Simulated assay, not measured.
Amino acid sequence: MNTSTNIHNMHLPDSFPPAEKRSLTIGFIPLLDCVPVFVAKELGFFEEMGLDVTLSRESSWASIRDKVQFGLLDAAPMPAGIVLASAMKLGATQPMVTAMGLGLNGNAITVSAKLWQQLNPEGKKFNSQSAAEALKAYLTTVEGPINIASVHTYSTHHFLLREWLTHFNIDPDNKIKQHVVPPPHMINVMQRGSIDIFCAGEPWNSLAQAQQVGHTLLSGHQIWENAPDKVLGVTRRWHEANPASHQRLVAALLKACLWLDNHENKIAGFRLLNKHGYIDADLSSIDLDFGRHCFTVSEATFPWLSQAQWFTGHISALNEKASAKEHSSVNQSTLHQAPLTATYLTDTYRSVAEQLNINLPTKNTKEEGAHAEHWQLPGTKHNISMRPDMKFK
């Protein structure tokens, strides 16, 4: 925990501009990592910031993206890759932006119960390498492709899955068929036998195991420890029309993340999802710590440009493969020129955080995926204690 600030004493100054739009609708997919939005609603942080927020449960990330674009939703937690792909004119009609991240970790890879018996008949404990070796050996014994699902083409889940496979010399495009399935439907689709493996956010991996439909193969932190995932997404048009509303929204979510940066509060926050019907699944049978969710401010909420670069690298690589396969005439140089600073609004985050007296990193980038232990990053008030972020544990 990087701050001892009493969040109940954190307020925007009276001189702060009023919200241009006070009544907001925020979309969500039922996942544990959307908990900052639920906490901000249930604990009154939105109201404290002068906002009247309605939460709207949506069916898929594609639906979230489209409804935000067309103004049916004002904002939503969404995979960072969706926001960045919109700036690259991929899968979106208008560019989106983000002014904050919404946490680290929270994903896992789950295999069907049948495949688990094939991969691990002796019940060994896997790490990223041994799990890959077991999968590679299995692939040599089957003729047809195995079916793998992630939640969106431009999601962290898809990119982590591809990085893991590629790192251990498994071609993600050979003997593997990729699918997109919304997180809440993963268990049913696996139970029907349509997919063999899925990569999704919690609680759907733990619930698949509790229901004996599948077995968790790896937690996402074993592929990339403390990896980024969701961000708060809005359209650029909405941001420009409602700058004070956007800043007040960020302020409320920062307070929620500060509240969640405490183990007891975090578990209590997850339990709110059941109590108030945000997730239609019984969470009492699973380990709510499995995903190792982290909401620490500023570590897990700052819109790091270095993380944006990681996402755009994967997006570009995917589209290069698709273009080569289809002999497309898409100008690949355009895809590599996503305006990161115009999409990840570091100045907006800094402006709000400074008003709330939050310690901030002195730079907008950091070295990603290179730290095996806790490390220190210079901050505007004092050093920021950062968590390990090594890959392939």
Score class of each variant (00 low, 15 high):
residue 132 A to V: 04
residue 132 A to P: 01
residue 132 A to G: 06
residue 132 A to N: 07
residue 133 E to F: 07
residue 133 E to C: 11
residue 133 E to A: 14
residue 133 E to M: 12
residue 133 E to Q: 13
residue 133 E to L: 15
residue 133 E to T: 13
residue 133 E to V: 14
residue 134 A to W: 08
residue 134 A to V: 09
residue 134 A to G: 05
residue 134 A to N: 08
residue 135 L to N: 04
residue 135 L to Y: 06
residue 135 L to W: 02
residue 135 L to A: 02
residue 135 L to I: 09
residue 135 L to H: 07
residue 136 K to T: 09
residue 136 K to F: 11
residue 136 K to Q: 12
residue 136 K to V: 11
residue 136 K to A: 13
residue 137 A to K: 14
residue 137 A to C: 01
residue 137 A to N: 14
residue 138 Y to C: 01
residue 139 L to C: 07
residue 139 L to F: 03
residue 139 L to N: 06
residue 139 L to Y: 05
residue 139 L to E: 06
residue 139 L to K: 03
residue 140 T to S: 09
residue 140 T to A: 13
residue 140 T to Q: 12
residue 140 T to F: 03
residue 141 T to E: 13
residue 141 T to F: 04
residue 141 T to W: 09
residue 142 V to E: 08
residue 142 V to M: 06
residue 142 V to W: 03
residue 142 V to S: 01
residue 142 V to Y: 07
residue 142 V to N: 02
residue 142 V to T: 13
residue 143 E to A: 11
residue 144 G to R: 06
residue 144 G to E: 10
residue 144 G to F: 00
residue 144 G to M: 03
residue 144 G to W: 00
residue 145 P to R: 03
residue 145 P to N: 07
residue 146 I to N: 01
residue 146 I to P: 02
residue 146 I to C: 03
residue 146 I to D: 02
residue 147 N to W: 07
residue 147 N to C: 04
residue 147 N to P: 00
residue 147 N to Q: 13
residue 147 N to K: 12
residue 147 N to A: 11
residue 147 N to H: 14
residue 148 I to C: 07
residue 148 I to Y: 09
residue 148 I to M: 12
residue 148 I to G: 02
residue 148 I to N: 05
residue 148 I to K: 01
residue 149 A to W: 04
residue 149 A to D: 03
residue 149 A to H: 08
residue 150 S to Q: 14
residue 150 S to V: 12
residue 150 S to H: 14
residue 150 S to F: 14
residue 152 H to F: 05
residue 152 H to M: 03
residue 152 H to S: 08
residue 152 H to V: 06
residue 152 H to K: 00
residue 153 T to Q: 12
residue 153 T to S: 09
residue 153 T to P: 05
residue 153 T to A: 08
residue 153 T to L: 10
residue 154 Y to P: 01
residue 154 Y to I: 02
residue 154 Y to M: 11
residue 155 S to L: 04
residue 155 S to K: 05
residue 155 S to V: 00
residue 155 S to R: 05
residue 155 S to Y: 09
residue 156 T to M: 13
residue 156 T to E: 10
residue 156 T to K: 11
residue 157 H to S: 13
residue 157 H to E: 14
residue 157 H to V: 04
residue 157 H to Q: 11
residue 157 H to W: 05
residue 157 H to G: 05
residue 157 H to R: 05
residue 157 H to K: 01
residue 157 H to N: 15
residue 157 H to T: 12
residue 158 H to C: 10
residue 158 H to V: 04
residue 158 H to Q: 14
residue 158 H to Y: 11
residue 158 H to K: 15
residue 159 F to K: 04
residue 159 F to L: 09
residue 159 F to H: 07
residue 159 F to W: 06
residue 159 F to G: 04
residue 159 F to R: 08
residue 160 L to V: 02
residue 160 L to S: 07
residue 160 L to N: 05
residue 161 L to M: 15
residue 161 L to V: 04
residue 161 L to W: 10
residue 162 R to W: 09
residue 162 R to G: 02
residue 162 R to I: 10
residue 163 E to D: 15
residue 163 E to C: 01
residue 163 E to F: 11
residue 163 E to K: 11
residue 163 E to A: 15
residue 164 W to P: 01
residue 164 W to M: 00
residue 164 W to R: 03
residue 164 W to V: 02
residue 164 W to Q: 01
residue 164 W to L: 04
residue 164 W to H: 10
residue 164 W to C: 06
